[in-house]
């Protein structure tokens, strides 16, 4: 299988980037998309060129480190699939594949296809935790949590922090990411004492980082590999209003 990869190349954060095309031969349908990029990089090394910098670690859809725009879609042509779980059988021989980094003000480009998503960590820093020290926990079954509540919390907790929601949103909003963490914790009894503070501080940080506001286009939930539902955003907004009123 042979494809043309049109890839965004940018040397560093403050240099200008541009697209470069690479004819890439010797691929097979069973290769993952990232393995195809590995293959291209081996070719580049042997031609004495710099490799394409792209992100990955687990390569099994759970760490959230991978993520590029492929032919205009975050993580490529399928819904709810990370870049590392995309396979070349999703493309045809002779295709041209356009590959770009996430684009958002809050995610500055580091190099080629790599961006800086530390803004997400700073949102978590503003309350995406339960304040309790190691060693202070009561017996686990002393806190009863119904299966429904626990399952709902887990649905939100499944977020992998890849940033596809931001990248795909025309406003570059981080509402899906932020709401997932808020709803994970605020729906559990353990998270309740800090519920109001959490929603106020995390949403404030989201704005400080330069993410846009949500206009409910629903684009994010289509791409989200963890299938976080957009209803989380509505729930976060309700929690926000309540917290504002009560604080």
């Amino acid at each position: 299988m042979k494809v043309t990869c049109k890839i965004w190349r940018q040397e560093s954060a403050d240099s200008k980037g541009n697209f470069k095309s690479y004819e890439t031969d010797g691929l097979t349908e069973d290769m993952s998309f990232l393995e195809a990029l590995d293959h291209l990089n081996e070719i580049l090394v042997l031609k004495n060129e710099r490799v394409v910098a792209f992100e990955y670690d687990c390569r099994e859809g759970i760490c959230g480190q991978c993520g590029v725009f492929i032919n205009g879609r975050a993580h490529g042509p399928h819904d709810h699939v990370t870049t590392c779980q995309l396979h070349m059988r999703s493309f045809k021989d002779g295709d041209t594949i356009v590959i770009e980094p996430w684009r958002a003000n809050a995610f500055p480009i580091l190099k080629d296809l790599m961006v800086d998503r530390s803004a997400f960590d700073r949102i978590i820093e503003q309350g995406g935790f339960i304040t309790a020290k190691t060693g202070t926990a009561p017996e686990a079954n002393a806190i009863l949590i119904s299966k429904e509540v626990s399952d709902k919390s887990m649905d939100a907790a499944a977020c992998i922090g890849c940033g596809a929601c931001v990248a795909t949103c025309k406003n570059a909003s981080a509402a899906l990411f932020t709401s997932a963490k808020i709803n994970h914790l605020n729906s559990l009894p353990q998270g309740r004492p800090e519920a109001h503070k959490r929603v106020l501080e995390m949403t404030q940080q989201m704005q400080l980082e330069g993410f846009g506001s949500c206009t409910y286009t629903g684009a994010c939930e289509v791409e989200c590999p963890a299938e976080i539902s957009i209803s989380n955003i509505a729930e976060m907004n309700a929690r926000y209003l309540k917290a504002k009123l009560l604080s």
Binding site: A137, I143, M154, Q190
Partner: peptide, 9 residues
Amino acid sequence: DHFVQQGVP
């Protein structure tokens, strides 16, 4: 106990 307290669902 610890992980439940920290909010593991």
